[in-house]
Structure formats: C-alpha cells, structure tokens
Amino acid sequence: MKKTYRIFRFDSAKPKQKHYDTFKVETAKGETVLDVLIEIKAHHDGSLVFRRSCRHGICGSCAMQINGLNMLACETQVEMLKDNTITVDPLPGFKPIRDLAVDMDPFYEKLHSILPFLINPDSPPTDKERLQSEEDHRKIELATSCILCGGCTSSCPSFWADKDYLGPAALLKAYRYVFDTRDVGLNERLPMLDNKHGLWRCHTIMNCNDACPKHIFPTEDISHLKRKVVEEKY
C-alpha cells in the first residue's frame, strides 16, 4: 500500500522556513506511522527529527498529530487511516524544536509542581508494602496507566489559550495521588490545584478524552478533583 506523507519540517534556528516535505512510502499490512517515519529517515531524508523509544505504546515518546488528531505514531497502523495523503505534525500547543520534536520541559515542570509522588508521613509497616484494597485501587487504576505522552494536554483548548494552565496530564496525575487512599498530601497540592491556572481552567471540553492513547478519561477525573477541592475548602 503506497501512500503520500506530508511531514512538518521546522528548525528553531530558521523559524521562518517551516514547511511540509512530501514523501511517497510503501508499507505492508500492520506497519505503523512510526515505521514510515523510520523508513523516511533511513532511506529518504536522514535529517528528519522525531522522538521514539519503545515502539510499543508504553514510553509515550512518539506522540504527534496525525491527520489532525493527537496519536502515538507507534500505535497508529497506516491501514487504519483511510486517506491516501497522511499529514504528520508535531503536538500542537508546545514549542517546536525541530521537525516533529517539541519542547516538553514546561509539561514536566507542571507535572512536578503537583508533587507527583505518595505523600504520607507515617512509616510503612516493617518489611511490607503499603497495602490497598482492590476496591480502593480501582478508583485510580485507569489514572495510573498514564504514559505521559502529552497528547491530552496538547489537545486542550484551555492549554492553547493559557500556557500556564496545568493541563489534563498534570491534573490527572494529581487525581491519581489525591484519590489514592494511602496519600494524605491534598493540602500540600492545594495551592497548585486551586489556582487561576489550575483546576478551574478546565471547562470539560473533553478533547483530552479523545486524545488519550490509553483510553483514560482525564475530564472525568478532573471533575472529581474539582469537587474534592470544593469539599475541602467549604
């Protein structure tokens, strides 16, 4: 199956020269957009820049916009895309660095700001883990499967408008810890969540739900978090 690929090209040293390069690539059944990019880099244009690591939908490195939707290139099989011309762009909303690679530093800064680790001053039982019931774990199970690809935050119009907004990925991580029955760190996280650039910029647009390659529903978890914060304050 031969298709045409329009790939966004950009060099931060020459920001005015952004453009699309077109490649025709033959693929076999089951091959993914990431396979196509690797093929282009190996045989058509070695200067093409993109991120990838695991190639199995776990590391989150190869999130990019394919035909206008945020997806993982390694999980998107070419035959799933009906168009004969496939357009590949970097994740929107983030500052592009080179071709399909964007600056993810602000994304990680926001993630770190919500203290993405278990907060519990009590020591765990000797020689044991902090155990949790299955029922308690179910509340956060889906949220723990986030691979931090940035697809959700990059698809969020609130984030496009306000670059200081925490974004769905950081808020989902906050939910994962706030609703973990072993965690007691809500008050420490509150100043970051209950903020003009925090929870209240989410207007339940739900693009993040569509963008998530792990089928998590960040909007729903963010809504739980909003109610939790209101209960905590009033």
């Binding site: 700001s113 200081d164 100043p191 970051m192 209950d194 903020n195 003009k196 650039h197 925090g198 929870l199 209240w200 909003k226 914060v229 209101v230 304050k233 009033y234």
Partner: peptide
C-alpha cells in the same frame, strides 16, 4: 507564572 497564594477560583466555579 502566578500560582498559589490568594488566587483561587474554587468559589467562582462552585457558585
């Protein structure tokens, strides 16, 4: 980036 102290939005959202 103004974060934290005194700049909430919880009441506005709730009310």
């Amino acid at each position: 980036m103004e974060r934290g102290i005194g700049s909430s939005g919880a009441f506005a959202w709730f009310f």
